[in-house]
Structure formats: C-alpha cells, structure tokens
Computed example of a mutant assay.
Amino acid sequence: MECYTTIFDSYEWLPPYGENHVSVDANVVTIHYDNPHDETNKEYPFAKRSYIFDGISSFCKSAFPGVACSTFDCDTDEKMSFDVLFEITHSEQAKKWNEYWQKTSFTFMYKNRHLCQFFTTANTAINVICTGVTLSDEVLLKTAEWR
C-alpha cells in the first residue's frame, strides 16, 4: 500500500544544500534560499518561493527532529523522502476532518488532504490538513529579508 504521494519536490528548485529559512504566516509557508542562479544575476543573491494552502482545517509547525504533530503508519519498505511536500495517502486526521465538515456544513464539498514536509536544513516540520496547495513562482531578493 502506498503511504504517501509527492506533491512538490523542492529538490527541483532548491540549491543542493537546501533552504536557509522557513517562515509561516497564516496560510503561507515561505521558503527562503540562496539564489541558485546567482552566477548570472549577482544583484539578487537570494530567492524565495511559497506554498499557499487553501481551506486549512489544521496547521502545525514543529521542530524537526522533535515531537511529531501527527503520526502515520506505513506498511511498506517505501523510503520516505525529506525536503519534499507530500500527501499522506490514508491519513486518519484528514478522514476525521472530512467527517466533521460533512456533519457540520451543508455546503462542504471539498476533500481534506494531509500534507507534510520536513525542512532538514531549517530543522522545521509542517503538517497541514487542507483542501489544496499551490506553489508560487520564484521571487528574487536583493537582501536576506529573514535576517
């Protein structure tokens, strides 16, 4: 049984050593990193991209490694990837949120999903129960605005 599905693979756009900083603000998780294209554009040595979550029912940011916000069982030898945003395929938390919203809302028609990512360089984990997520375009920065 498949335990998780990769939604966004940050290895496709982060530098090989990962992120510099992760910030959380309401429904947005912003990932700051050194501009991987800085050899061609030295005026903008930093960059950022954001995950924008829709329909959040639950959001947890924690230290990683540390005490997990949620647990899930995986009955396979499938190796978990770090630094990718993934969906827990058979999440009890997402199932319970779906049941809750179906009981309390006549207009509920979205399926909650349980999304997670472990940011190994920033030592941060996020667990989000939401209806969807988008990845912003890259924004180039002149300064490290997280400092």
Results as ranks from 00 to 15, higher is better:
residue 20 N to V: 03
residue 81 S to C: 09
residue 87 E to V: 03
residue 58 S to L: 12
residue 5 T to L: 07
residue 55 G to C: 11
residue 46 F to Q: 10
residue 125 A to Y: 09
residue 41 N to L: 14
residue 38 D to F: 13
residue 93 Q to R: 04
residue 90 H to V: 01
residue 94 A to R: 07
residue 24 V to P: 00
residue 132 G to P: 07
residue 127 N to F: 01
residue 86 F to K: 09
residue 65 P to T: 11
residue 138 E to W: 10
residue 98 N to K: 08
residue 7 I to L: 10
residue 71 T to S: 12
residue 103 K to D: 15
residue 18 G to K: 02
residue 66 G to K: 10
residue 46 F to N: 10
residue 113 R to H: 05
residue 63 A to I: 03
residue 103 K to Q: 15
residue 94 A to T: 05
residue 81 S to D: 11
residue 106 F to H: 08
residue 55 G to F: 10
residue 10 S to N: 03
residue 30 T to G: 08
residue 140 L to W: 00
residue 137 D to F: 02
residue 34 D to Q: 14
residue 68 A to M: 09
residue 94 A to I: 02
residue 21 H to M: 12
residue 80 M to D: 06
residue 142 K to G: 02
residue 131 T to W: 02
residue 71 T to F: 10
residue 46 F to C: 11
residue 137 D to P: 00
residue 64 F to R: 04
residue 64 F to D: 03
residue 12 E to P: 00
residue 106 F to G: 10
residue 113 R to F: 00
residue 63 A to S: 13
residue 50 S to W: 04
residue 98 N to E: 09
residue 90 H to Q: 12
residue 143 T to E: 11
residue 145 E to Q: 00
residue 40 T to F: 15
residue 126 I to K: 04
residue 50 S to H: 04
residue 28 V to F: 07
residue 80 M to H: 09
residue 80 M to N: 02
residue 44 Y to A: 06
residue 99 E to N: 07
residue 66 G to C: 11
residue 41 N to Q: 12
residue 122 A to P: 13
residue 147 R to V: 01
residue 8 F to M: 09
residue 68 A to V: 06
residue 40 T to E: 15
residue 61 K to N: 03
residue 71 T to R: 09
residue 118 F to G: 03
residue 20 N to D: 14
residue 29 V to M: 10
residue 51 Y to C: 11
residue 63 A to H: 11
residue 56 I to R: 13
residue 4 Y to I: 05
residue 26 A to L: 14
residue 113 R to P: 00
residue 4 Y to E: 06
residue 145 E to R: 01
residue 27 N to P: 04
residue 44 Y to Q: 04
residue 11 Y to M: 01
residue 38 D to I: 11
residue 107 T to S: 05
residue 89 T to P: 01
residue 91 S to A: 11
residue 39 E to K: 15
residue 27 N to W: 10
residue 129 I to E: 01
residue 142 K to E: 06
residue 145 E to N: 00
residue 9 D to L: 09
residue 134 T to G: 01
residue 74 C to E: 11
residue 49 R to K: 14
residue 145 E to L: 02
residue 38 D to S: 13
residue 68 A to T: 08
residue 23 S to Y: 08
residue 38 D to H: 13
residue 114 H to Q: 08
residue 57 S to Q: 14
residue 133 V to A: 01
residue 8 F to R: 03
residue 37 H to P: 03
residue 29 V to C: 12
residue 52 I to G: 02
residue 113 R to Q: 12
residue 98 N to C: 08
residue 28 V to M: 11
residue 134 T to D: 04
residue 14 L to D: 02
residue 83 D to W: 06
residue 83 D to R: 07
residue 116 C to S: 10
residue 135 L to K: 08
residue 17 Y to R: 07
residue 67 V to A: 11
residue 44 Y to S: 08
residue 44 Y to C: 08
residue 101 W to L: 02
residue 28 V to A: 06
residue 60 C to T: 08
residue 142 K to I: 01
residue 105 S to Q: 12
residue 40 T to K: 14
residue 128 V to R: 01
residue 25 D to T: 02
residue 36 P to I: 14
residue 39 E to R: 15
residue 54 D to R: 14
residue 113 R to C: 02
residue 133 V to G: 01
residue 81 S to G: 05
residue 123 N to S: 12
residue 134 T to Q: 07
residue 47 A to Y: 10
residue 70 S to Q: 12
residue 21 H to A: 12
residue 40 T to M: 15
residue 40 T to W: 14
residue 71 T to Y: 05
residue 112 N to A: 07
residue 22 V to S: 04
residue 62 S to V: 12
residue 59 F to G: 05
residue 147 R to P: 00
residue 42 K to T: 11
residue 99 E to F: 06
